[in-house]
């Protein structure tokens, strides 16, 4: 019973997080989805090392406990959590920058802006590209400009 609750909890967190990432229309909520999903994955990892009726893997009164939980997944989770923290911090920095630039974190608005900017930078003519036959496309000489170190 306990096992079922724990696994269901962990997997649910994972799926809720992933669904949140895919369904949200706000970039910050997408990031929160990632955070939740990471928590779920970390829980799965901890559960992989759990043993019934075991103690923590710490020396006590002259010996390690006879029955102890697996220390390896705990170490892995420690690593995974720290990795997650680093990535989340970087993501927030990126979000701050995006909001400064576009004034919004709404997915649709930001994505539209992105497509316009990209087409502009790469020299694709914006309004005509919808109607022009695609065969007119790439030109080797029309691609300079993007990239900062050449």
């Amino acid at each position: 019973m306990l096992a079922a609750i724990l696994y269901v909890g962990a997997v649910s967190l994972l799926v809720i997080g992933l669904a949140g990432m895919l369904l949200s229309s706000h970039l910050f909520r997408m990031l929160l989805g990632l955070v939740i999903a990471e928590a779920g994955a970390n829980l799965l990892l901890v559960l992989a090392g759990y043993r019934w009726e075991s103690a923590a893997p710490i020396w006590e009164s002259g010996a390690y406990p006879q029955l102890m939980v697996d220390p390896v997944p705990q170490a892995m989770v420690l690593t995974a959590i720290v990795i997650g923290v680093g990535i989340q911090a970087l993501a927030i920095a990126l979000l701050v920058r995006i909001r400064q630039q576009t004034g919004s974190l709404q997915r649709d608005i930001v994505r539209e802006q992105l497509e316009q900017d990209l087409d502009l930078e790469l020299g694709v003519k914006l309004p005509s590209s919808m109607h022009a036959p695609s065969g007119e496309g790439p030109l080797l000489s029309g691609t300079r400009g993007a990239g900062n170190e050449q």
Binding site: L18, L34, A91
Partner: peptide, 20 residues
Amino acid sequence: SRSAPLISFRYLLISGLGSV
């Protein structure tokens, strides 16, 4: 590029989904 932070963020999300 102007869109660099957003592109990086989307890359981060896809990559994060993969790592999970």
